[in-house]
Every structure is written in C-alpha cells, then in structure tokens.
C-alpha cells in the first residue's frame, strides 16, 4: 500500500501526464466546460486506458514490431467505440453534448503513450497498475479544471448556482481560458516538484 501511494505521488507530480508530459490535453480542454462533462470524459478515458493496458499487455508478444502502431491504434479505437456506444446508450444527453469528442480519445496521446511505453513492455499486473495510476491522475486534473471552469465561467457547480450570473467570466468557458487555467495548475505542480527536489537534496 505504501508503494502504491508513493507511485501515485510520482505519477501525480513528477510524471503528471497532462501537466508535465503534455499528453491528453485535447480531451481535457474539450470536455471541461462543465463539471458533469468532465466527469463523463474522466470515466471514458479511465476505462479506455485500463482496458487497453489489459488487452495490449496480453497480446504484446503476438504483434510483430513493424505493425505495432496500426494494431495498437485499432485496439484503442475499438475500446473507444465501445465506450462511445455505452455512453450513447446510458447517457444520451452527454453523448449529444460531447459530440465528436468521444471518438477523439482514440487518437489522444495519453492512451497511446501508455500503451506504447508501458503496456507493450510489461506484464499485465504492472501495466494495469500503471494504467490505473495514469487514469487517476488524468481524472484529478480534468475534474479540477472543469470545476474551476464551471465555477468561474457560469457560476454554477453541477448546475447549482453558486455565483450570481452577471459575475461569470465567459473567458473561462472558452478554450483559451481552459489553457490559462491549465497553465496555472502546471505552475502549481512545478512548484511542488521543485520543493520536493530541494527537500531531497537537503537530506
């Protein structure tokens, strides 16, 4: 359990997928206008990440090196399509809201990087744990960003009004506002990283 937390800490700060490695930014920015769409996207990406880790670490030895890219992309796209069908069936309003942006996950860097760097080299247990940690990291970031954007932009949280409507900043709802908020978060993560580093050096 202790190692799990230290691994999670490493994933959250030193190797934060969206804020340090800069992968998976497109789904993050697109689906974070409201908290609820952020939650749906977090669920979609997490399930795709974990299942792709399972499948790819199982078949990794059967797939020849030179067609790896295509094979992995097909596997990921299939899982994304399954997620898309599920969302369409059980959350139809969110399906309409997120539109073309669910299939976009198929070519998002976060899933492919995970598949290629971890799942193709490790056994099922290691890759599933790593995939879960990445999924948790991404979910934390997208939930924070969508919470801030919804609160600042429309003054609501899960459609409950928190701030008077006329004080909403529509900039937070635009893509640029999302990028600025992401930049602030990235600065926070960087600061934490540097504090940790100096502590380590002090020891």
């Amino acid at each position: 359990m202790k190692t799990f937390f230290s691994l999670l800490q490493k994933k959250l700060f030193a190797e934060n997928a969206p804020l340090v490695m800069l992968v998976g930014l497109c789904p993050l920015l697109i689906a974070s206008k409201t908290l609820i769409s952020g939650l749906v996207m977090a669920a979609a990406i997490s399930s795709v990440l974990i299942f792709s880790c399972v499948v790819i670490s199982l078949v990794r030895k059967l797939i020849p090196d030179n067609v790896r890219l295509v094979a992995y992309m097909i596997i990921i796209a299939t899982l994304v399509s399954v997620a898309e069908i599920m969302i369409r069936a059980y959350l139809p309003t969110h399906y309409v809201n997120l539109g073309i942006y669910i299939p976009i996950i198929a070519s998002a860097g976060i899933v492919f990087a995970q598949a290629d760097n971890v799942a193709s080299k490790n056994g099922i247990v290691v890759s599933v744990i790593d995939g879960t940690l990445t999924a948790i990291t991404f979910s934390i970031v997208i939930i924070t960003v969508s919470f801030l954007r919804e609160l600042l932009g429309s003054g609501t949280i899960l459609s409950h009004r928190m701030i008077e409507e006329e004080y909403g900043m529509s900039f937070a709802l635009s893509g640029g506002g999302g990028l600025v908020i992401l930049g602030m978060l990235a600065a926070v993560v960087k600061k934490i990283n540097s504090i940790k580093k100096s502590k380590k050096e002090g020891e």
Partner: peptide, 23 residues
C-alpha cells in the same frame, strides 16, 4: 519568467492568450 512558470506553464498560458486573440 517567475521560476514556477518557466517552461510548460508559461507556454500553456501564452497559448491561452493567443486563443483569446483568435476568439
């Protein structure tokens, strides 16, 4: 640039401001 903002964070914020101009 402030130290915490060097590199990725300031790049993200700059991109956001360019996006604001484009909007």
């Amino acid at each position: 640039v402030p130290k915490a903002f060097e590199g990725v964070p300031i790049a993200l914020i700059t991109a956001g401001l360019i996006a604001l101009a484009f909007s």
